[in-house]
Design a protein around this nucleic acid. Structure first.
Length: 456
DNA sequence: GCATGATCATGC
DNA sequence: GCATGATCATGC
């Protein structure tokens, strides 16, 4: 914002209200600008804060007197009719050298973002931007049930800076408030206070998953079940869940099933049991907290011999799409970079599987950008060269895709209903002449998952 | 026993 | 009909 009028809170809200129902094209018109100007809204505000998405570099909130930060952000309608945020909501840049000196309530983050006027517009793929329409405005402050988690997230980020690990920050470290990269490119780095290693420039953000649920809640009126009796005040969210589950440690699966009156033949029995142990009636994966934080629950069984039998699968990739991706914004990197996992461990001893513990985990950026990337690189190389099948032995096609024995962390393997369940190939496979191939996906090695579970 | 290709089962 | 989480089958 430049020189000029000081706006009160009411005036800001009035301006926002007048924007609803207008397209960006209309906002650009002289007539609408004049109309808004008459009603007390300075045309300049629209120009700088609506059209430029409030991207000023001031440290104060956009409307300093009113204490309001203005954000304009897109959402979209999915094919199945649901709504989703199109992006994370990027907030202020994290000043590594200064922010750690504060407490949450004296932080720069809180000063700038405690009150945000969120203006939503509907993004439609097939339309020019000038036709996108502003549909909703909300004066947003963090809901009291979310605030404890936001505080923890802020602390998690600050603690990593204090530990000299700003360069290891990942958006998936936290639940709602993330530290996302922000800069012209990956080489936008800055100094950090407790290490000589330059760290990527990052900004606080409300994660895409958080914004999606906010859109569904506020615009769509869809509310989700919250995890019962969990009030993460002093304890972290993970600790409060762990604490709640402690009483069930060592209980046999069938004991738990009868305790919670769950049909013990259910295929996803262990998943249901974890939900019930936490007091959740529906699915744990669609609780308010898990959805907002993009936490994916995975149940894991450890055999009597201390082994996880199966590796962990992920969605299939399309051969024709993956070869056109850049690693930095590839689907695989995006998934591991924004997803937190909750491993629920069941251990076999005394002749039965028993509940053991849970563990939250997200992939360290260094493993993602080195080891996982190399598997991804090799996969693309194999597809591009048309060298998928190496040999055929006993009717089975032995592939050149990176296998489990080549990499400590992950591998590529079929993931389909049948071998004939295929995706097209961009390049004909040299040995077989095939133009399509059995669907594949990236798997986390069972040995790696075991290592994660075993780490203190 | 384990790596790897292949397939099952469920739910949307 | 297919995505996804889960699991089977076989040969080295």
């Amino acid at each position: 914002m430049s020189e000029g009028k000081v706006y009160t809170k009411d005036e800001v809200l009035e301006i926002a209200k007048m924007l609803i129902g207008k397209t960006f094209g209309e906002l650009n018109s002289y007539q609408v600008q004049a109309e808004l100007y008459d009603k007390g809204a300075h045309g300049h505000i629209l120009e700088e804060d609506v059209f430029q998405y409030g991207s000023n570099s001031r440290s104060a909130p956009d409307f300093e007197e009113a204490g309001i930060e203005l954000k304009v952000t897109p959402y979209k309608k999915n094919k199945n009719g649901t709504l989703s945020a199109k992006e994370r909501l990027v907030l202020n840049i994290i000043n590594y050298m200064e922010e750690y000196k504060n407490t949450f309530y004296t932080s720069h983050f809180w000063y700038k973002n405690k009150l945000i006027e969120i203006i939503w517009y509907l993004h439609e793929d097939d339309k020019p931007k000038s036709d996108f329409k502003i549909t909703n405005a909300l004066l947003f402050s963090f809901p009291k049930e979310d605030l404890p988690i936001i505080k923890q997230d802020w602390n998690t980020i600050i603690n990593k800076i204090k530990a000299g690990k700003a360069h290891e920050l990942s958006e998936a470290d936290t639940m709602y408030l993330g530290a996302c990269t922000k800069g012209a490119n990956a080489s936008s780095v800055r100094k950090q206070p407790f290490s000589n290693i330059p760290a990527k420039q990052r900004a606080f953000c409300l994660k895409t998953s958080y914004m999606t649920q906010l859109v569904r809640d506020y615009i769509g009126g869809e509310h989700l079940e919250r995890i019962a009796n969990i009030a993460p005040t002093e304890m972290t969210f993970e600790d409060s869940l762990t604490n709640k589950l402690k009483q069930y440690k060592g209980k046999k699966v069938d004991e738990l099933a009868s305790m919670f009156k769950v049909d013990s033949k259910a295929k996803n029995l262990n998943e249901i049991l974890i939900a019930r142990m936490l007091g959740v009636k529906g699915k744990l994966a669609v609780t308010d907290e898990f959805v907002k934080a993009n936490i994916v629950p995975k149940t894991i069984r450890i055999t009597e011999k201390g082994r996880i039998v199966e590796s962990m699968s992920f969605p299939t990739f399309k051969f024709t799409e993956i070869i056109n991706e850049e690693w930095e914004d590839s689907k695989l990197r995006e998934m591991f970079n924004t997803t937190k996992f909750m491993f629920a461990v069941f251990k076999e001893y005394g002749g039965a599987y028993r509940f053991e513990s849970i563990k939250f985990w997200n992939m360290p950026v260094s493993i993602l950008d080195n080891n996982v990337k190399s598997v991804w690189d090799k996969t693309i190389d194999v597809i591009k060269k048309g060298e998928i099948v190496n040999t055929i032995k006993n009717g089975k096609r032995i592939t050149n895709f990176p296998g489990m024995s080549e990499n400590e962390y992950c591998h590529v393997r079929p993931h389909a209903q049948k071998a004939i369940d295929v995706y097209p190939l961009p390049v004909k496979d040299k040995l077989t002449g095939l133009e399509e191939y059995t669907k594949q996906c990236f798997w986390l090695n069972n040995s790696y998952v075991l290592k994660i579970i075993s780490e203190e």
